[in-house]
Amino acid sequence: MRAPNTEPGRTALICWGSLIVLASRAQLAVGPHPRNKAAFAAAAEPAIPEMMDPQAAPLLSASGLGMIRGERVLFREVNLAVRTGEALVLRGANGTGKTTLLRILAGLTRPEAGRVARREAHHWVGHREGLKPQETPREHLKLWAQAWGTNVATDSVLTRMGLNRPADVAGRYLSAGQRRRTALARLLLEDRPVWLLDEPYTALDAEGRALVDALIAEHRSRGGSVIAAIHGEAGFAASGELTL
């Protein structure tokens, strides 16, 4: 048995460690990763003063978007823009890429072509609610209020969404409609100009649909905008439709 000569090893470890630190710095220094190009492009756009000419400044716009899944072209050359007060409805049969387009707009999915310019913060309500099985609606709202650093009274939000009765019931015992209401309740936690909604009416009863319409109307009257993928009739007057 001989004692290991650990000195060269230690030096090698230190060198290796510093190399990795340097490499990560270098990656930061060379600039935007291709994946983040759209985001960086958005950041580089000159900030447009909101009050001057709201019509000239889309809150969110996209140009030349194209997407491939596997080897299949989902869509190509999609251009869109929403300005303050506008609501854009995405239409198309199942599997045409409405959800994918929304995810691209939200920055969750990287498009194969084109770019997205996000000038304002957005809310995301996808078709999966983001509610944990053991989480109650009250806990859910408290968590996201904490994560986003807002001070909204969650009680009033719960009341508004008609969630007072199941407010302390764990997610796994909630009905699909109650879970959807909980997800939509996040929209009221913080005022964000752009709402990205994927099938907001899913699983909701008549009263719930009316509630969604009322929320959207209020949001638009405050100068916000909505992009929503909707099957069937929209309960609000869309300012534009995009069919994929």
Partner: peptide, 8 residues
Amino acid sequence: FSVDLFTS
């Protein structure tokens, strides 16, 4: 490195 140390 760890394998070298182990076997040494």
